[in-house]
Design a protein around this nucleic acid. Structure first.
Lengths: 257, 257
DNA sequence: GAATGTGAAGGCTTTCACAGCT
DNA sequence: AGCTGTGAAAGCCTTCACATTC
């Protein structure tokens, strides 16, 4: 989940399981779509399908929030939207700062989903003086020197880091010192933060590598059908994983002493 | 994990646990940094710290790959880099297409980490004819009409979707039909894909909502220290979660029938 | 009849703690 | 002496299946 030394202490006071929390936004999105189509009620089955989970999981998830459904009927869409929003803390306004207005930072600033649910971009911050004052997504880019002032003045508790990896930890430290207690990190670095600060990480390259892992598996193993054959990959059938073979043959120049 | 109906079948043939796979890129990054500093060996303790996990977990993770360490000494950095790269399938080249060259797509195209580890942007694709031919990150944007041709010709098996939500499913279907079997989805939609296709989702707005949830908890609950007081939040102490109170008072206009 | 809410079972992941190797 | 590799224990999370409620 969060990176660095961020363990929500054992005292998650009668809390909702983390896995459930991570799915609430999914349900909320599906519900919002239903709400816009003026659908009054929805069953766990329908909603689960829309959210891409199975219905047992969804019901279990909702059971942690309370008994908001009606047996034999389903869930009231509007009511659930409200309850989940409240649970997620989206009934209040969350000012957010984005630090690092490069390609990615600009993309984030322009991202609509940002503004939608309770999140408001309070400021864009960049270390490059050449950027200062430039308008991005209608907001002027401000210089890093002002970071503390901005965080304090806007009561910002959520910071988004979109700087290069090298700058991320310092930016993080400054955000935290200024009062930010939640960080969304797009820089490919492990951030270390004091207890009580949450960090979530979004890492493109990690996601791709995970996909590559599975992709590699597909070429040669199961999927017992046609797919396997069509590929130009070497036929690494079984015997590859179970008793992992010692390093023979295809190893690179560098070997352990 | 993956979204939609993508369960790797029970037959994950003697596979590495998914949780472990998700951490391998982290280890790889830390190891690469050590390698660049010409550090020859590293202990599980040191490497774990660098990767932001604990050492027991790291050792357990590595145990699924094989016995690549030396007791009393640690792990050979270069050797581990190779083994993990190989396990992740990064010793081969992965051509990738990015579909949807808006702010985000452009940011992704420019993202260095992309090119670094075995991933190569084979093409940028956008539905807007006005974009066609424009250079982004040194590559010409090509029109959606050419999607199938591009995927086929470049043997693309990984596609990145950075389109608006409304277009994502159609793009996904076309990618899959053209032969793509792994998708990284940045659009805020649940994609449905046939078995055998992996989908991973990156969703900014979900990450923020999860942070907001925890942020909300901080204002008022534990963190027994000073932090709580300084806030202007209403003092929602205990009694909030355990026996979730029925909807009284602060509920919105809409209520269940 | 229909669909929720939930104990109980089953799986997966993390952590512990120590035997085993260098 | 030091550090890896790993069974076993503990903790989560998911799935099952059905009693309960409308």
């Amino acid at each position: 989940m969060a990176t660095g030394r961020t363990h929500r202490p054992a005292t998650r006071s009668r809390g909702i399981p983390e896995a459930t929390v991570a799915r609430l936004p999914l349900y909320l999105r599906a519900l919002t779509a239903l709400s816009e189509r003026s659908v009054p009620t929805v069953s766990s089955e329908e909603l689960a399908t829309a959210a891409g989970v199975n219905s047992a999981k969804l019901r279990k998830d909702f059971s942690y929030l309370g008994s908001y459904g009606t047996r034999g009927v389903g869930y009231d869409v509007e009511y659930l939207v409200y309850q989940i929003s409240r649970e997620l803390g989206l009934t209040q306004d969350w000012p957010v700062v984005i630090v690092g207005i490069g390609n990615l930072g600009a993309a984030l600033a322009n991202y609509g989903g940002f503004a939608s649910r309770g999140f408001r971009v309070a400021a864009l911050i960049d270390a490059d003086p050449a950027q200062t004052g430039k308008l991005v997504a209608g907001l002027p880019v401000r210089h890093t020197d002002e970071l503390e002032e901005i965080v304090d003045h806007n009561q910002v508790s959520i910071g988004v880091i979109a700087t290069p990896a090298g700058a991320a930890q310092e930016v993080c430290d400054r955000l935290v010192a200024a009062g930010v207690t939640s960080i969304l990190n797009f820089a490919p670095t492990v951030l270390s933060v004091p207890d009580g600060v949450d960090v979530r990480k979004v890492d493109l390259s990690i996601e791709l590598q995970i996909l590559a892992f599975h992709e590699q598996r597909k070429a040669g193993e199961d999927l017992g059908e046609a797919v396997a054959a069509a590929r130009g990959a070497l036929p690494k059938t079984a015997a590859e994983a179970v008793d992992r073979p010692g390093p023979d043959g295809d190893v690179p120049a560098v070997m352990p002493a």
